[in-house]
Amino acid sequence: MASMSDHELYPIGDAARRSGLSVSAVRFYADAGLIEPTRLNEAGHRMYDIQAIARLELVRTLRELDTDLAEIRRLLDGGTTLHDLLTTHLGIVERQERTLRARRAVLRTLIKQGGTTAQADLMHKLVSMTDEERERTIDDFWTEVGANLDVPDGFVDRLRAMRPVLPADPTAAQLEAWIELADLVSDPAFRGAVRTYLRDTYAAPEARTLATEPFQEFMHGSGAALMEELLAAHRAGESPLSGRVQRTVTLFLEAVTALSGTPLTAEARDRMADGYRQIPGILRQLDEEDAAAGGPGYGDTHGRYLALVAAINGTTGQEHDPIPYVWIADAMQAVQPA
């Protein structure tokens, strides 16, 4: 049985207060034929029942979502459902959100860089690029960087494969990273710096071996899995002489020597161990030489490219731990070849 309040009528002031609207707004919606009063009282004043007030509340909510009166009229007349109307408006709000996020990324980048109007126009174009345009931008970069570069076949193609994929609903941080990356890869100076870094890094014969396809396949495939196993053991505080470490490092040594078609011998083991032991010093020396010469280093060239790609792809923070080269060298030194 319906309660008495279901049949109670309220004057326009009460209807306005209950629905969250002003009296003039309630009067406007009545005159527009959207929500007419339930009846007029003896004095000719507009009176509203609970159902009418509920519809006024709905109209207020839809207007706050920027729904136009024509759409509201179709809903109230039964021409559409509330679910369909809200779904449509959700899509509108989400598109507005993406637009605002892109604008925020542009503004934040401009503020950090002290940008000009021309830069603002450029950044707007960068965040508005289609997927195809972004792909072409990255392809153009690697085509120029890799042109006649003296590195083993397939190496530049592998580098090209590590590319940004901006999601359909990127965060502001991802948009900012894309703005920086797109600006960098279009800069002739940055292209030249990356090219110089790759050329200088892989010029030595021993370094060229690291860029060959078999070695790269190994380091990004089974070699990566073995290295991760070693890193896990190191994180767990295991000795380089533990059974797990010795089994893993033996497989690693056997696989590396097999790449050059040679067996794992004591001499090969010693060379590998000695090489790993020297890596930290070599890396420090390279950093010092780059700083002294003012030349492009990894962090300013290819490293910066990879860091921005990781930020755009949402993989930042998934990098491996720093490699404990000396610990691995100690593990290698203990291996007894068959």
Results as ranks from 00 to 15, higher is better:
113 Q>P: 09
106 V>K: 01
241 L>Q: 07
37 P>W: 01
182 A>F: 06
241 L>V: 12
16 A>L: 03
233 A>E: 08
131 D>A: 09
88 T>L: 12
120 A>F: 07
216 Q>P: 04
299 G>Y: 01
20 G>Y: 05
108 R>P: 06
57 E>I: 08
233 A>V: 13
5 S>Q: 13
246 Q>H: 04
67 T>D: 05
130 T>D: 03
240 P>F: 08
237 G>L: 04
54 A>V: 13
18 R>S: 14
238 E>G: 02
230 L>I: 11
83 H>Q: 13
323 I>T: 12
280 P>A: 05
197 Y>H: 02
155 F>C: 15
266 A>K: 02
233 A>Y: 06
182 A>H: 11
43 A>E: 08
280 P>W: 01
152 P>S: 04
92 I>W: 08
117 T>S: 15
18 R>Y: 13
68 D>L: 10
317 G>V: 02
49 D>L: 09
110 L>W: 00
194 V>R: 09
154 G>P: 14
164 P>K: 14
236 A>E: 11
337 P>K: 02
115 G>F: 02
250 T>Y: 03
85 L>D: 02
231 L>E: 00
16 A>G: 07
58 L>N: 15
135 E>R: 13
188 P>T: 06
163 R>P: 09
272 M>T: 08
169 D>R: 13
310 A>F: 02
87 T>P: 06
124 H>V: 12
166 L>I: 14
57 E>P: 10
79 G>L: 14
316 T>W: 01
174 Q>D: 11
268 A>P: 06
151 V>E: 09
154 G>I: 13
143 T>D: 15
83 H>C: 08
195 R>Y: 09
8 E>G: 10
149 L>I: 03
310 A>M: 04
107 L>N: 08
228 E>G: 10
141 F>E: 05
169 D>T: 13
145 V>L: 15
216 Q>G: 02
200 D>Q: 02
189 A>W: 08
264 L>A: 04
174 Q>M: 13
259 L>H: 03
185 V>P: 03
196 T>D: 15
10 Y>K: 00
175 L>W: 09
26 V>D: 07
119 Q>E: 12
169 D>G: 10
306 L>R: 06
133 E>T: 05
112 K>M: 15
163 R>L: 10
